[in-house]
Every structure is written in C-alpha cells, then in structure tokens.
C-alpha cells in the first residue's frame, strides 16, 4: 500500500515537473506571454510573428534545462535574425513559406506531441529525451554546448552524478575516497530516502542515474523523488541539507560553488558517489525533408544558425554539428529504463 502511494507520488511529481518544464514565457512581436496563459494551438494559435498569407516556418522550443540562456527573449532575437537573413528568406519563399514563427510548447509531452502531430514543427530546440521519445520525421543537425563561461563548453556529452552532502551517512572523508561505495548501498539509499532530481525527463538528472543503479538488480526508482527543475536547484537542495542525496548534471556543483564564490573545497561539502555514462546534450533538429544534405532551405537555416551562435560572448550557447547516431545510446537507455521500470511496477502490483 505504501509502495503504491509512493509510486503515485512519483508520478504526480513527474506531472508537476512537466509543468515546470513548460512553465516558460514566449515573447514575440513585443508581447510577453506568461506560462499561465492558455496553451497556443498549432499552428496558427501558437504562431508569433509577422502576419502573412503564406504558411510560416515554425521554430519550436521548450525551456531546455541544460541551456538556460535560451530564454523566450533569446528566441525572439533569433526569429528577428532569421527574418533579416536575405538568403534564408529567399529559400523560405522558394519552399512556399512566408516568414519565421515561434511555438512554445507547454512542456515535455506537449513538445513531443507537437513534433508528432501534423503539421508539426520545422525546426526544434528540444531536450535530448524529447527527441528520443518522438516518432516524427526529424533529423539531428546540431547539439547545443553549454555556455562558454562555465568551463564545460567543450563537451557535447553530459554526465549524470549522484552526490551526497557531508551530513549524509554515505559521505566519505576526502582522504578515504579511494574505495568505491557499493552501488547496491547507493541504490538502497536512492530508493528509500528523499532524493533531489532534475526532472522526470532529464537524462543526466534522472534517467541515467536510475538506469545505472538498475544494474545492481535493485529497482532504483526513488520512492520520494523531488524534481527540482534544474541541476542548480538539485545542488542547492543537497548543499543546504534539505535533502541528503541528489542526482544532477556533472560539474553543476563545482559550477555553482564558483558562481557563489564559496571558498570551501568541494570535496569537503559533498561526495560524488556515482558518475553515469555520458548522454548527449540537447539537439537542434530539422524536419527531415529540410535536412541540410537534401534541402537548400535546410542548408540556409544551418548556416544562419551557425552564424547566429558564433558570437563569442560570455554565457552564449554554442552549436556543434551532430547526427542521429549520437542519440542512439540514450534512446536505448531510455527504452531499457522504461522497460525495467514497467516490469518492476508490474511485479510490485502482483
């Protein structure tokens, strides 16, 4: 009975976290729409851009957790930039499009649905898992790298970590960290106590840590998950000892300590018990028929985006060329996680 309750609580938390992911503002044409505003319909209701009789070329997005600088205002600037790119506009006209429009998805599932349902989105900045989940016809063109002032911008893979604070029973003194903490022990704590996690659809902050602990043979789905919305929030939850254990993107804790000018050495504040395999950073996908290798419009769009992202200013995101195969491992891990999770649920139900 208690397990049932925990399971429903986890699902409820996942639903709330979806709301957090979708709780973002869209700005276009000088207007700001708060997250509480009614969801825009596709395509006309969600379209923010110059009115035109021709169909608009639609950029879709939600708030990508790994790329916080991608705000609604940032997308509005991108929209303006594309609109002012003569070559791209010419290519749009040739394909029968009028202008560039923006669609803000309400959350993870909403974005997946919009990518699958006609007329769909033409270019999407989406979380890695959303790309793996959707069954629409999209091709990966870029991967987003982290902001270049965080010291992690050379990575296009991100790693998940499970960390505990210095008050947690699994915390090891910095001198005695040569030995690994048994994964089964980590798993037992992970399952039984409140754990701060990024979101139910975060590869580094949920799926990969769970998937890694599944290998111990324990159903490592937290019974008291606390989905915080970002790795920053997870680290703050752990460091402030609101919870003792958390899972987040690797480097987030060091990054946070640096930004808050906390002088204490990181190893004296927390202990990383487990690091997951790398998962790809969030992709930028084009509708497959606009894939750069087969479409002039796709090539023009790729060039424009590359130029837009080339500005080397602090905090700016960078783009890295990528392809579908970079996400194969993540897709596999997700499927396995779903399967194992479902099997364990069925087992518990019996």
């Amino acid at each position: 009975m208690k397990r049932e309750h925990s399971k429903s609580a986890a699902k409820a938390s996942r639903r709330r976290a979806l709301g957090l992911l979708g709780g973002w503002a869209v700005a276009a044409g000088g207007r700001i729409f708060a997250s509480e505003a009614p969801a825009p319909s596709v395509p006309q209701g969600a379209l923010f851009g110059p009115a035109s009789s021709a169909r608009p070329f639609i950029l879709g997005f939600i708030r990508p957790e790994a790329a916080e600088p991608l705000s609604a205002a940032w997308f509005r600037r991108l929209q303006s930039f594309l609109d002012s790119d003569a070559a791209f506009r010419e290519a749009l006209k040739r394909e029968g499009y009028g202008s560039v429009g923006l669609v803000a998805a309400e959350g993870f599932n909403d974005l997946v649905r919009r990518m699958e349902v006609a007329p769909g989105l033409d270019c999407v900045f989406c979380p890695a898992l959303a790309y793996c989940r959707q069954v629409g016809d999209y091709a990966v063109v870029f991967q987003l790298r982290g902001p270049n002032d965080r010291g992690r911008d050379k990575y296009i893979f991100q790693f998940g970590v499970i960390l505990v604070n210095r008050h947690h029973p699994l915390y090891r003194d910095p001198q005695s960290r040569t030995e690994q903490v048994p994964p089964r022990l980590i798993a037992r704590h992970f399952v039984s106590e409140p754990v701060a996690l990024v979101s139910p659809y975060s590869a580094a902050g949920y799926i990969y840590p769970c998937h890694e602990l599944f290998k111990t043979g324990i159903r490592a789905v937290p019974t008291r998950p606390i989905f915080c919305g970002s790795s920053d929030e997870v680290v703050k939850m752990v460091l402030s000892d609101v919870v003792g254990m958390g899972a987040c993107e690797q480097g987030a804790a060091e990054d946070l300590l640096r930004r808050y000018a906390i002088p204490t050495p990181p190893e004296q504040l927390y202990d990383v018990l487990l690091t997951t395999p790398g998962s790809p950073t969030d992709p930028v996908v084009f509708r497959r028929r606009f894939s750069p290798d087969r479409s002039e419009l796709g090539r023009r769009l790729k060039d424009s985006l590359a130029r837009f992202f080339s500005a080397d200013r602090p905090g700016a995101m960078r783009l890295e060329d990528s392809e579908d195969s970079a996400f194969a491992a993540l897709r596999a891990a997700w499927n396995e996680f779903e399967t194992l999770s479902a099997e364990t649920d069925a087992l518990e139900t019996r």
């Binding site: 609580a9 409140p194 008291r224 606390i226 929030e233 703050k236 939850m237």
Partner: peptide
C-alpha cells in the same frame, strides 16, 4: 510537503 517543494531560484 517536501515533494511539492520550493525553488531556490
């Protein structure tokens, strides 16, 4: 009510 928690931000 820890699950419906606050956001530090």
């Amino acid at each position: 009510d820890l699950e419906r928690t606050f956001r530090f931000a």
